[in-house]
Computed example of a mutant assay.
Amino acid sequence: MDGVHDLGGVNGFGAVELESNEPVFHEDWEPIGYALIFVGAADLNAFTIDELRHAIERMEPRHYLTSTYYERIVTGVAALFVEKGYVTHEELERRAGGRFPLARPVTPGEPAREPSISFAPGETVQVRKDHFRGHSRMPKYVRGKRGVVLHQAPRFPYASAAGHGIEAKHEPTYHVKFDAKDLWSDAAENSTVVVDLWESYLEKV
Rank of each mutant, 00 (worst) to 15 (best):
M1L: 07
D2T: 05
D2V: 10
V4P: 11
D6R: 10
L7A: 08
N11C: 03
G14P: 02
V16T: 11
E17L: 11
E17R: 14
E17Q: 11
E19V: 13
E19W: 08
S20H: 14
S20E: 15
S20A: 15
H26M: 06
E27L: 12
D28F: 07
D28H: 09
W29E: 07
W29T: 06
I32G: 01
I32C: 03
Y34Q: 12
A35V: 01
L36P: 00
I37L: 05
G40M: 14
A41G: 02
A42P: 00
L44H: 00
I49C: 05
E51G: 01
E51Y: 01
L52M: 15
H54N: 14
A55H: 13
I56F: 05
I56H: 04
I56C: 05
I56Y: 04
M59T: 08
P61A: 14
L65D: 14
S67A: 15
T68P: 02
Y70F: 15
Y70S: 02
R72K: 12
V74R: 13
V74H: 03
A78N: 15
A79L: 00
A79N: 01
E83P: 00
K84A: 15
K84Y: 04
K84W: 03
K84I: 03
V87A: 01
H89C: 01
L92T: 00
E93C: 13
A96M: 13
A96P: 00
A96D: 05
G97Q: 02
G98A: 10
R99C: 11
R99V: 12
F100M: 11
P101E: 12
P101I: 06
P101L: 09
A103K: 04
R104T: 12
P105Y: 09
V106A: 11
T107L: 13
T107H: 07
E110K: 15
A112H: 03
E114K: 12
E114H: 03
E114P: 00
P115W: 07
P115C: 12
S116Q: 05
S118F: 13
S118D: 13
F119H: 11
A120V: 07
P121N: 08
P121I: 05
Q126S: 09
K129G: 08
K129E: 14
K129P: 04
H131K: 14
F132V: 01
H135M: 09
S136H: 12
V142T: 09
R143C: 03
R143P: 02
R143E: 06
R143M: 03
G144A: 05
G144S: 10
V149T: 06
H151C: 07
Q152W: 01
A153L: 14
P154G: 12
R155T: 11
A159I: 01
A159T: 09
A161T: 10
A161D: 12
A161N: 10
A162P: 13
G163M: 08
I166M: 15
I166G: 01
A168V: 06
H170K: 12
E171Y: 09
P172M: 07
T173C: 10
Y174R: 02
L183R: 09
W184H: 12
W184P: 00
S185H: 13
D186R: 13
A187G: 06
A188Q: 10
S191V: 02
V193P: 00
V194S: 09
V194C: 05
D196G: 06
L197D: 08
W198Q: 15
W198Y: 12
S200T: 15
Y201G: 00
Y201E: 03
Y201W: 08
E203C: 06
E203Y: 08
